[in-house]
Design a protein around this nucleic acid. Structure first.
Ligand code: MN
Ligand code: MN
Ligand code: MN
Ligand code: MN
Lengths: 224, 224
DNA sequence: AAATCAATTTAGGATAACCTAAATTTTAAG
DNA sequence: CTTAAAATTTAGGTTATCCTAAATTGATTT
C-alpha cells in the first residue's frame, strides 16, 4: 500500500504543462513543452521518455508523435493544478495579492504544500470553484469541472454576458485587462463585429472598447 | 550587481542547522549535523567543504574541527529562520494549525516563499517578534533579537515567572506540554527542587507538576 | 521522388546531492 | 605512550535534471 512516492517538482511541472497543452485533445509536442517549460527540447525528450517508462506510466508517448497524459499522469497534474489555483485564490483573499502577482508565488508553493494545507485553505475559503482569473479549480477528488463559458471571440453584436474567466498569465496583459474592467464578474455587451480583423467592439460596464482576437480568444463568457 | 543567486533548499537547511548547533558558541561537528539533517556524515563533510569554498564563503571550516557560519552564512541562515518562524505564526493564526503541527509545513514552505510574501505575512500579523513556540523571529534586517528569558531549570523554589519560549520540535512532547498548560504566556511558580535528579515541582496555573531536566531545560522563563 | 528545413531524438557531459566502504585522524583509556 | 573506539574524511558510485552538438526523422515543396 506504499502510496507511490510524490513526483518531484520538475515532474510536476512537466505534467501540469502537458495537461494544459493537451486540453484541446491533441498530443503536446516536444517543442511546445520545451517552450512552455523553458527547457531545451533535447532535455524534454529525455524526461518524457522517463515518464513514459515509469510504472504506472505517467504519459503516453510515441516517438515524434508528442505526449498525452495517462490516467495516473492526469491525476498528478490535477493535483498540482488544484494546489496552484487554490493558492492563487488564497493569496489574493488573505494577503491582498493582485491577480497579476499571484501566479509566480503559486508556481513555487504548489509543489510543497501538504494535503492538509490544501484542505485547510479550501475550507477557509468555502471551497471556491474558480481562481482569481476565473479558471476552474479541480475538485478534492481531482475531477476538473466542465467549463460552460465560451470565448468572447465567439459572440456577436447584441449578445450580452458575464466574464467568467481570463486565460492569461502575463502580468502586463492582466493589468491592462483590469484597467478595462475586463475581470471575472464584469458584464459585457457586444456592440460591433469586424469580420476582416475579427475585432469586437465591446461595452464593459459603461466603457466601450475595441478588442482584437488575441484578447477576445482569452476571455470566457457566460452568455445571458 | 548580480545578487548572489539564492541558496538551494539543501544549502539553506545546512545553514539553518549550523546556526542552531552553534548558538552555544562552539563549532558544529560533522556528526551532529549529520544527525540533525538525516544525512550521512560523509555527505555532510562534502557539503561543508563546498560551502567553505564558495565566494564569499558561507562557513568557516577546519578539518576535524567542525564548522561555524561566516557573516554571509549567518545572514542566509537568519533569512530561512525568519521565514520558518513567520510561517509558523501565520499558519497558526490564519489556518488553525496547532503548535505541534506547524513545524513540518513551515520546514518546506520556508524555502520557496518570496520576500514579498514574507513582508505580507509579517505585516498582516503586525510584525510579531515570536513564533508559536515563543522562539524569537529575526528582524527584517536579519538581526536576531537577544533572548532575555532563562531556562526553567535555573529557577528555584518561590521564584515565579511567565513562560516565554518552548524549545522543542517533537510533536509528542509539544502535545504533552500543551496538556500541562506549559505554553508561552503561562504563569508558573517553583514549589520544590530536588538536587539529586534536578526535578522541579512547578505550579502551572492551578495545576502542580514535577518536571525533569529534559523538560525544564527546554522551557524559557521571564522571571517576575 | 529528391531536396530541404524543421522537429525530434541520441550521444556525451555537467552539476547538485546523496550513499557506502575504506582510509585517516582525533580522542579517550589504559 | 600505545591502543582501541569514535569521529571524520576520502574514494568511488548513483540518481535526477539539464545542456550542447550531432544525427535522425518527418513534412513541405518543387
Ligand atoms: Mn496561475
Ligand atoms: Mn512550478
Ligand atoms: Mn519550527
Ligand atoms: Mn527545510
Amino acid at each position: 500500500m506504499t502510496k507511490k512516492q510524490a513526483a518531484t517538482q520538475s515532474v510536476q511541472d512537466y505534467l501540469k504543462r502537458i495537461y494544459e497543452l493537451t486540453e484541446d485533445g491533441a498530443p503536446a509536442s516536444t517543442n511546445d513543452l520545451a517552450r512552455e517549460l523553458n527547457i531545451k527540447p533535447a532535455s524534454v525528450t529525455g524526461m518524457i521518455q522517463k515518464l513514459a517508462a515509469e510504472k504506472p506510466a505517467l504519459v503516453e508517448y510515441q516517438k515524434h508523435q508528442g505526449v498525452t497524459l495517462t490516467k495516473a499522469g492526469r491525476k498528478a497534474a490535477l493535483e498540482v493544478i488544484r494546489h496552484h489555483r487554490l493558492l492563487e485564490a488564497w493569496l489574493v483573499r488573505t494577503l491582498g495579492y493582485s491577480w497579476d502577482e499571484v501566479h509566480e508565488e503559486a508556481e513555487r508553493l504548489e509543489h510543497v504544500i501538504s494535503e492538509d494545507f490544501e484542505m485547510r485553505i479550501a475550507a477557509a475559503m468555502g471551497h471556491p470553484d474558480r481562481d482569481p482569473h476565473g479558471e476552474l479549480i479541480p475538485t478534492a477528488e481531482l475531477v476538473m469541472p466542465t467549463e460552460e463559458s465560451i470565448p468572447l471571440s465567439a459572440l456577436r453584436p447584441t449578445q450580452t454576458g458575464i466574464v467568467q474567466c481570463v486565460k492569461a498569465a502575463d502580468t502586463e496583459l492582466l493589468r491592462f485587462l483590469e484597467g478595462l474592467g475586463l475581470i471575472p464578474g464584469a458584464e459585457i455587451e457586444i456592440k460591433e463585429y469586424s469580420p476582416f480583423d475579427h475585432n469586437l467592439t465591446v461595452k464593459i460596464g459603461r466603457k466601450t472598447t475595441v478588442l482584437g482576437l488575441n484578447i477576445t480568444s482569452k476571455i470566457f463568457i457566460e452568455e445571458s
